[in-house]
Design a protein around this nucleic acid. Sequence first.
RNA 1: CGGGGUGUAGCGCAGCUUGGUAGCGCAUCUGGUUUGGGACCAGAGGGUCGCGGGUUCAAAUCCUGCCACCCCGACCA
Length: 481
Amino acid sequence: MAKEKKEFVKEITRMEDDFAQWYTDVIRKTDMIDYSPVKGFLVLKPYGYALWENIQGFLDRRFKETGHENVYFPLLIPESLLNKEKEHVEGFAPEVAWVTHGGSEELQERLCIRPTSETIICSMYAKWLKSYRELPYLYNQWASVVRWEKETRPFLRHREFLWQEGHTLHETYEEAQEETLRMLGIYRELAEDFLAIPVVSGIKSDKEKFAGAESTYTIEALMHDGKALQSGTSHNLAKHFTEAFEITYLDRDGLLKNPYHTSWGSSTRLIGAVIMAHGDNRGLILPPRLAPVQVVIIPIMPHKEGVLEKARAVEGLLKDRGIRVKLDDSENNSPGWKFNEYEMKGVPVRLEIGPRDLADNVAMVARRDNLQKSACSLDTIDETIARLLDTIHQDMFDKALKEREEKTFTVKNLEELKDQMENRPGFAKMMWCGSGACEDRIKMETAATIRCIPFEEEKVGDCCAVCGGEAKHMVYVAKAY
RNA sequence: CGGGGUGUAGCGCAGCUUGGUAGCGCAUCUGGUUUGGGACCAGAGGGUCGCGGGUUCAAAUCCUGCCACCCCGACCA
């Protein structure tokens, strides 16, 4: 048996030598997903879906608070609609899936499975919008989209993923811009205040922006392996689509005008971000506000007298506080097995209650994030745990921020950038002249990309790190998922 | 699309060189003993050996065609 134990430890500690392997191991062992018979499509099992539900819950609440309503548009988009916005179709055409038959009949016009819904939504907005009095349109939809990716990875890139996409119309450019930034701000809140992942907010370069957008804003997070993950995007689409789809309204001045347009989205990819930004070699570490189970109580009951009753009482206390708690009183597995199981699944807090604790009127409290274990009086346990969950959130955020800072360097030229990307991957801060040519060179020579021009730029030099010309912006560069 | 590899029980694999009863570990089920860091004993169930063809008295094993999946090199939330 000692041998089995050793193998288990070996398997889960692969992170040091192979991050990708560690990532898929964690996902497999935590029973979040399964792989479908169709390549690139994922089955979300209860534990995986619960994570998404909690993300949905946070976003939906914030969307409603900012005046948005949920709607639903169809899965299939006629080819002619997809083709209306030129840049958009060029961007998405290579990766759309097509429906060509209805029953045994070949369709006259083939239908694409939405890779995103701008086109179908705009076609309906064109029909609906008449007057400036109806503006703004503030709609969001929860849906899944299909993009026929060549290479897939669980949560980070599949051919179908769950997401939300907001699509709004406004009277002025300024209003649309304000909306674009407001929604990016909500994504930042989600990442930092809910998932405990620090992010860099900023604007995408022209080459990296959404197909059909005037400008694209992003939040970028850094993973354990030094790669960046785009974790939410918000686009100011200006009139690109509203003109192409002839969305018009009669304004106060009696003139027919095209409204300004935004769209913004975030997806199940965020679950991948949580795994890769917080996990360790024992498995998942869930931030408390996301965790489907925040506290697991493991009764240790060689003789059972009183222990289970006390565990149930504690469960009740925590539930009354609104804490998501699970009492695992199954007798199939040993306490040791349960400890490992819930650590692997990332449950933030574990309570152990056994005869020894009962005698002292305490419970053992074990934190998942730093693996510390201490005794806690049963009299004040609900208060203690409630506070502890907030502490854990903050500590996880601080730790992730510290890690990001340790992986962020300023580079002065292409050589330094290349060196960083090869030897100590992470974010590089550098100056950039703004030219597409220099951007291409970065990508060609280092395989990294400009992640964004941050809102908070620092002047880390005077000239472009690539061409030496006059610098326009400071940018974050990294290899990306 | 080019290079390499793998298909055998739910999962992970051995067996193939040199053809001859389908095997191991985990998981599952039953009974019992256990329970403070992945418990133990005893028993049981579970297989078109990826698919098709060929050679042979006999094929998981040899030959052949096909299929699927994985890894490495060009696009992407």
